[in-house]
């Protein structure tokens, strides 16, 4: 009764020691000179490295607490759509970025860290309305987005162009020269084009509704195929 028969599983399944970057660093957990009677390996096995599932609830709690404390400068999530997965990023002021898959979502998050703030977390609460309205748009149940938009990533004339672009309704198209004219610089057609090409919030600020004067569809940040899909979706409705 009084004898200890504790068993210890030294090779805990799923236990992994992360690779270490420091050259010459002795891997912990290995019995070094055989002088510790396996103590270091028992120690390493005493707390298995938690798997990613262990962090799901913790990360959700972190995002909620960060939001409540005013520390979540950029909340993001990915939304599936007929033109591929879209990254949406929302600041405390509104939707600041919609990114297509071809832009590389990781790279876009890095750009946001540099341009807005590195306090970036995946978080549902602030991004839910964007996801819901995009879904309604793609399923033909929404013609106007009712969202706060944060256009801090567009400056000067580009910002003026985007402000005009927000007035172009669902199902309508304008030409680049119409847009330049509306923005107050009728000769700045190329600049109007580059404002569309660098639109930080495509779809919601509808740069897909800008086409060439000759009727061809022109360029699009998400690729010409995505633009064709969106124009077809709106003309069918």
């Amino acid at each position: 009764m009084g004898t200890s028969t504790a068993k210890h599983n030294h090779q805990t399944p799923g236990h992994q020691t992360p690779g270490h970057q420091t050259p010459g660093h002795q891997t912990p957990g290995g019995s070094t000179a055989g002088d510790d009677n396996g103590v270091t390996s028992r120690l390493a096995a005493s707390v298995p490295m938690p798997g990613p599932e262990a962090l799901v609830a913790l990360r959700a709690r972190l995002a909620a607490e960060a939001e409540a404390e005013g520390l979540l400068d950029v909340a993001h999530r990915t939304v599936d759509s007929p033109i591929g997965p879209l990254l949406v990023a929302v600041t405390y002021d509104g939707l600041a970025r919609v990114a297509f898959e071809n832009e590389g979502h990781d790279e876009v998050l890095e750009e946001l860290a540099a341009a807005i703030s590195p306090r970036i977390l995946a978080a549902p609460r602030r991004t839910d309305p964007v996801a819901r309205q995009l879904d309604e748009y793609f399923t033909g149940r929404r013609r106007h987005f009712d969202l706060e938009v944060d256009l801090r990533l567009a400056r000067g004339f580009r910002r003026q162009v985007l402000d005009q672009l927000r007035l172009v309704d669902f199902g309508h198209t304008v030409s680049y020269s119409d847009l330049a004219l509306a923005a107050g610089s009728p000769r700045a057609v190329r600049a109007a084009g580059s404002a569309c090409a660098t639109n930080p919030v495509p779809l919601v600020v509808p740069c897909h509704r800008v086409v060439r004067s000759d009727g061809s569809i022109g360029q699009y940040r998400g690729g010409p195929e995505a633009k064709r899909t969106l124009l077809a979706l709106e003309s069918a409705a």
């Binding site: 992360p18 005493s46 707390v47 490295m49 938690p50 798997g51 990613p52 262990a54 962090l55 913790l58 990360r59 972190l62 950029v74 993001h76 998050l109 890095e110 946001l112 860290a113 540099a114 590195p118 306090r119 970036i120 977390l121 995946a122």
Partner: peptide
């Protein structure tokens, strides 16, 4: 500077391990 998300992704498990041990 990396998005903070990535910091959590890369180091969250180790920090949890330390908290569990202590």
């Amino acid at each position: 500077m990396e998005p903070f998300d990535r910091v959590v992704e890369e180091h969250g498990a180790v920090v949890l391990r330390v908290c569990l041990a202590l």
